[in-house]
Design a binder for these strands. Sequence first.
DNA 1: AACGCTATGGGGAATTTCCCCCTATTTAAC
DNA 2: GTTAAATAGGGGGAAATTCCCCATAGCGTT
Lengths: 231, 231
Amino acid sequence: MTTFSKEVNQTNKTISMENCIVGVVDDHVLFAQSLQGLINSFDGFEVALMARNGNDLINKLSTVNKEPSIILLDINMPIMNGFETIAWLNENKPNIKVITLSMDDDEETIIKMLKAGSKGYLLKDIHPDTLHLALTEVLTKGHFYTDNVTTALLRGVSKKDEESLLENFSSRELEFMELACSDKTYKEIANEMCLSPKTIDNYRDTLFKKLEVKSRIGLVLYALKNKIVNN
Amino acid sequence: MTTFSKEVNQTNKTISMENCIVGVVDDHVLFAQSLQGLINSFDGFEVALMARNGNDLINKLSTVNKEPSIILLDINMPIMNGFETIAWLNENKPNIKVITLSMDDDEETIIKMLKAGSKGYLLKDIHPDTLHLALTEVLTKGHFYTDNVTTALLRGVSKKDEESLLENFSSRELEFMELACSDKTYKEIANEMCLSPKTIDNYRDTLFKKLEVKSRIGLVLYALKNKIVNN
DNA sequence: AACGCTATGGGGAATTTCCCCCTATTTAAC
DNA sequence: GTTAAATAGGGGGAAATTCCCCATAGCGTT
């Protein structure tokens, strides 16, 4: 079967050694591969790494010969999401510039990724030209901020800074929250997490205080609104 | 700036008159344009119509010279969504075959689109080869059903058919559901609705049975997922 | 008039949730 | 090297929730 990348390589565009190497990390294969074709059609850019999530990226980075300068990173991915991935990249590959490419224009999400060092935050409904511009700008100036980014920052700063940045949940707490957002009793959750119901009591109480809610319903609503878990 | 479609037209693939004309309706421009390139790279297929939503499609259909045989239709779009669009197509362009191409793998959504006559339901994370296969099959056999579709149908049919289309909530039940989706106790809800807590008990129990949930959490999740109330 | 349906309320019991209190270990931070 | 946070566990009791039953009143249909 004819694949897209083959076709693109048959265009008159020469893929030279000086091209900026781009990586694409997205679990939507169709989107990712289409994106690859699009970027390969840009002069001076070349996609040399495709991954379906953070974990996949880590594996492929270790085997690749040409490390990407820029990585286009999705957020909602199975196994290892965008937040976890950018954290890993900061630790292990600080030279790779990350541009977030997400469907989600939630302000807190935008701020979260920018604080994590994302050099840009593009929505997936942008024009291809904007993507080209973003890649060019990040390569030359080091960053590319669209309007949604600045407005998010402005509002985020003026409203509540530290307070709203409550991404201070431990992994165990997040695990619990995920399960709390389901039609299960705490007893069942305790079994699933291999913990005593009393320990679950503690996680619940701690979170109630942290989130300033009075009941499990409030916790669920918080988790869903802030997309800590998705329905 | 070099656009993607230009590049693709420079490939050695000949776009003949016998090509199957495909339309793409999606508000994610980046995705849509990438998709266009991908489909154009398939032998025998050609994208000749791009629209950002149903309304845009209607306008463009009236001006286009070559009407598409197949339309790839997104669901979540501004102004006029996929449900409205397929309904319009059924009325006005019954010969155009629709393949739904969505992010949403919710069973009710899948069934809704299939009932509306969608010839296939693809998730956006499928492999490009699957898209090619889907286009070919829809062109030759008239339909292409992936696993997610059949499982959705099986479960939907076996469990409850008409019944599952339960937009049969009384206004009082809806009122209750709205309040149930908040960090309030039933007692508070009773006060707010000027009812005895015991009556609230009854609303709760009735809804639990109707929705097949075991707890208020389940009810909240149902209400939010089906957008009966919005968070 | 009889039937069904919805809205309304209730009794009582079992379970779950919530909210205090407490300890202990391990790991990270300062 | 103490402090702090994360992790895990527990007691006891009050309150809320869940889950069965049940009854009545009203309203429209046949």
